[in-house]
Design a protein around this nucleic acid. Structure first.
Lengths: 189, 189, 189, 189
DNA sequence: AATGAATGAGGTTTCATTCAT
DNA sequence: TATGAATGAAACCTCATTCAT
């Protein structure tokens, strides 16, 4: 009888455990040995659950994107638009640490995909689409470009945190205000 | 004396030549041999002009940041704020390809710096400050947070281009409108 | 007691089942996991019946050599020499597929033994002797060198099949004719 | 200025130097580190001259096949057939050590090729053809099957030497006599 | 100043074998 | 007995860097 009963669940746990490592050091600067050590398993076990480092990372990226969408869905959709924008901002601030790390991983993943042949870009685009839809739905947006813009800004702000002293909270508040001003002027009325 | 001047100039040329390479593949995915080949020199020559790959990349990042600031300074400061925001947007659109690549390099560099001991973060922060000042000056901003926000958004939009189909022009126009709406509501009056 | 008999029999079945696998891919290119899969058991079970991959292979080689001798013994020893040579050839042709695979395994095993310390060369030589005797007996040979030669030629022809387009049947017929011509000239009369 | 002027020549020397190693231990049992050590270079240098272990081995096999043909061409073609057969036998005996090792490598290579996708089997068959032609030409053979047979027998005999005590000289002499008897009976007259 | 062959530490991955269940 | 997850030594290979020419 095998020791691990639910391989799928265990894989998820392993991925969660190396989230910080990848976020802090970046895909290229993390060795498989480091990952194994961080996870408390041998390199052999690593390769028992993931065919290679690349796929491990891709699955991490996918898992992260799912969690992101989950977070976004916490916003109460019964409130009015301005309030929802503020709620979104608050949500991002509440999950500050996670959002910053998630952006780092996402950036890394993006670079990886573009550095590859083609093929799996489909997977990539699907994930990207998922983000857009989550935001569009959240703010009743018909224009997906606005959703893209919001997510791009969030990523930009998050990544800037990696080493600048700018204040994440202030930056997100600015984004919130920008959005409200924009909506008031162009969309509501 | 003239020799040295040549060397400085030559170094600059070398850096310019590998701009695209780093932008497209990322620091970790570019080998010194690839760089040498792209530059049309031997690896030995590469190491004659730069002590190592790291420094080469740092100097590239620095050179890029200087060029960015140069571009920003093309905006005519005699126009009113709204117009200057529009001009800034137009400038970014005009230099679209460059802006996207520059963002890729910059983010790559940022990750590199944060993945390292500490040390040169000073160099890094200085460059970052230069960006902020250029934007702050351009838009008569007293609050450096807004400048940071703008630059972060631009970076976010730029890297989203790396593989998404979003339209850079549309995204920059959105940013422009956001800024104008925000300025009209909170800063002008 | 019955248990043990079963185990011996089971081991034999397992060995037979991985005959093709080893013949086609070679000892070094077959993993224990592949073997286990081919046999329809787990790697754990494999190690329950055989102490390690090496021994498994050695036992397979031994089992194969026994089967070979069995085949050779089908020749009717009452016929005259020429006829027996022809019968031997026919026998090889009839068991074409098996002979080719058996040769592949045997050569693989030989290489393995010579690449090792020493030790089990005794086992190896015993098996080799068995081959020679079977052939010598079959053709009433006093000179074991001739038996060795015949077996070496058969092996040579068999492995040439592995990728060349030469025709096994034709090659064996040639061998038959060579032997007959040789016997007529030097041994008979 | 590079240190090694004639890379092609150097590659040949490197291949020659690892001939024994591969012949004695077999492709799978030789590590790249062992090869490097045997050659007196670093693993890096190894990979400077050969893209990978596989190709290194393939090039060795090709080089060996060329040397074999060279050896065969030493036979004086003005003598009569029987004499040429004897000369061929003598040649093999003179190069005994080499022939045995070459056979080991060739066997190994053959297994490798059949274990691979397909593609380069063309290369393989070309080499094989080269052998046949060399023998066919040597003995004025119209039938390539006989050439194949001869080469297969030589390989069989050589490989049998790897661990058996049979005498190479005796075995080759037997082959010679077989061939002469066969030729006298079926071809000459 | 320029070259590119040489280096070797260290990265990713494989796989025979063990062992808890 | 049977399982297959877990192990880790060791394999192949890469690549930043050095150095003889």
């Amino acid at each position: 009888m095998p020791k691990i009963v639910d391989a799928v669940q265990y894989r998820r746990e392993l991925l969660s455990k190396c989230f910080d490592l990848f976020a802090e050091k970046g895909y290229a600067n993390v060795t498989t040995r480091q990952i194994a050590k961080e996870l408390g398993v041998s390199t052999g076990t690593l390769y028992h659950y993931f065919p290679n480092k690349q796929v491990l990372f891709e699955q991490l990226a996918e898992q992260v994107s799912l969690q992101d969408v989950e977070i976004l869905q916490k916003v109460d959709k019964d409130r009015d638009i301005s309030q929802r924008i503020i709620d979104l901002g608050q949500l991002l601030i509440d999950h500050q640490d996670y959002i910053i790390k998630q952006a780092a991983i996402w950036l890394d993943f993006r670079q990886h995909c573009s550095a590859r042949e083609v093929s799996d870009n489909v997977v990539f685009q699907q994930i990207d689409l998922r983000y857009e839809r989550a935001i569009a739905e959240l703010l009743d947006l018909e224009d997906s470009q606005i959703a893209s813009f919001i997510w791009a800004s969030i990523d930009g702000i998050a990544i800037a945190q990696l080493d600048r002293q700018t204040n994440f909270v202030t930056q997100i508040e600015l984004l919130t205000q920008m959005l409200i001003a924009y909506f008031e002027k162009h969309i509501l009325t």
